[in-house]
């Protein structure tokens, strides 16, 4: 464990204890949603100052002349997307501090971004225990942080997104941002790896999975790459432990129910009697979304047909035998 990592560990544990002790104030900070319309208006106005530059509009009509426009073009935040994200009701300055208010921004401002654990002590404590065991934590030696996956200006809570296809799109983009980009992958890959071996192509790695593109749009990477748990685990397991068994999803006992569709489980209505009908709205999953009554009827029909034919044959045999005995 590097020094940086150790320090982070200490902050997290300290933060966690603090959270337990001062559950009141710290929790209030994370849980309280600013419902007060006046406050929301105040935050909106404050953020508009940053959006004056950090948006497409700011790029087209810069309020200040002589800015580094090429650099600014890489630092855009979409106000509409931001307002739907976890942190959409927050003032930029709550995380970025006062250093970015003046322009040019203060020299040390970048270092003052609040770490996630400042507000999410309990969540970070729990997630870290799983994350520390993940292949990323072990192979990438502290290069990866919460924000590598969760863009704090963009990401939304799965339950709030609701539509499974949109959840899949968001969560897979987190992984594919690196795993589909040579540039970003190399930034994180261990030196040995980035020199010797190139980023393995995602569709090639999963060539054993038919129609990978269809799967990427219908299930998440984490469905196969994390252990099954009550809540989504952050332990991305070693590739040898990843799920390769089709029947994990393609059967009536499909794990999709308890993973991707977990937050919709209460909405399960067994529509028209289908098994896993909650999935059926978004995807037809061979083996999982079938109808027990139709299946029973079809099995019975085939059974009766075979029995009828065998019976017919038996009677034919017996009567032929009797006829042969009677005829001289």
């Amino acid at each position: 464990m590097g020094l940086g990592n150790l320090l982070r560990r200490v902050t997290v544990v300290a933060g966690f204890c603090l959270a337990l002790l001062l559950a009141g104030p710290v929790q209030a900070q994370t849980d309280a949603k600013p419902i007060d319309p006046e406050l929301i208006e105040k935050i909106r106005k404050a953020n508009a100052e940053c959006f004056a530059c950090h948006t497409e509009g700011g790029l087209k009509a810069p309020p200040v002349a002589g800015m580094d426009m090429a650099k600014l073009a890489d630092l855009l935040v979409d106000p509409a997307v931001y307002s739907h994200s976890y942190h959409g009701n927050m003032d930029c300055k709550q995380c970025h501090g006062q250093g970015y208010v003046p322009f040019p921004h203060a020299a040390g401002a970048a270092k003052q971004v609040s770490p996630c654990e400042e507000c999410h002590a309990v969540k970070v404590f729990k997630v870290d225990q799983q994350f520390d065991k993940s292949v990323h934590a072990q192979n990438l030696k502290g290069k990866m942080s919460c924000a590598s996956c969760h863009d704090p200006h963009v990401a939304q809570v799965a339950a709030k997104i609701g539509d499974p296809k949109a959840i899949v799109a968001q969560d897979n983009a987190m992984c594919l941002d690196c795993h589909n980009s040579d540039l970003r992958f190399a930034q994180f890959a261990p030196e040995k790896l980035s020199l010797k071996r190139k980023r393995p192509d995602i569709d090639t790695i999963h060539a054993w999975l038919p129609n990978t593109k269809l799967h990427w749009g219908a299930v998440r990477c984490i469905e196969c790459h994390t252990p099954e748990a009550k809540t989504q685990s952050h332990e991305i397991v070693n590739k040898d432990k990843a799920q390769k068994n089709c029947v994990a999803c393609h059967s009536t006992a499909s794990s999709l129910k308890t993973r991707l569709y977990r937050h919709l489980a209460t909405a399960e209505q067994q529509r028209y009697g289908f098994a896993n009908s909650i999935i059926l709205k978004t995807s037809y999953v061979v083996g999982a979304t079938r109808h027990p009554v139709v299946d029973a009827a079809i099995l019975a029909l085939v059974g009766l047909t075979v029995a009828g034919l065998l019976g017919h044959g038996m009677v034919r045999l017996v009567l032929a035998w009797i006829r042969r005995r009677r005829s001289p």
């Binding site: 089709c246 029947v247 059967s251 083996g287």
Partner: peptide, 17 residues
Amino acid sequence: LHFADPALPLVEFSLAR
């Protein structure tokens, strides 16, 4: 494929497919 279930003696899913 249709009755895929680890408990039944069927052709393995990926081979069947």
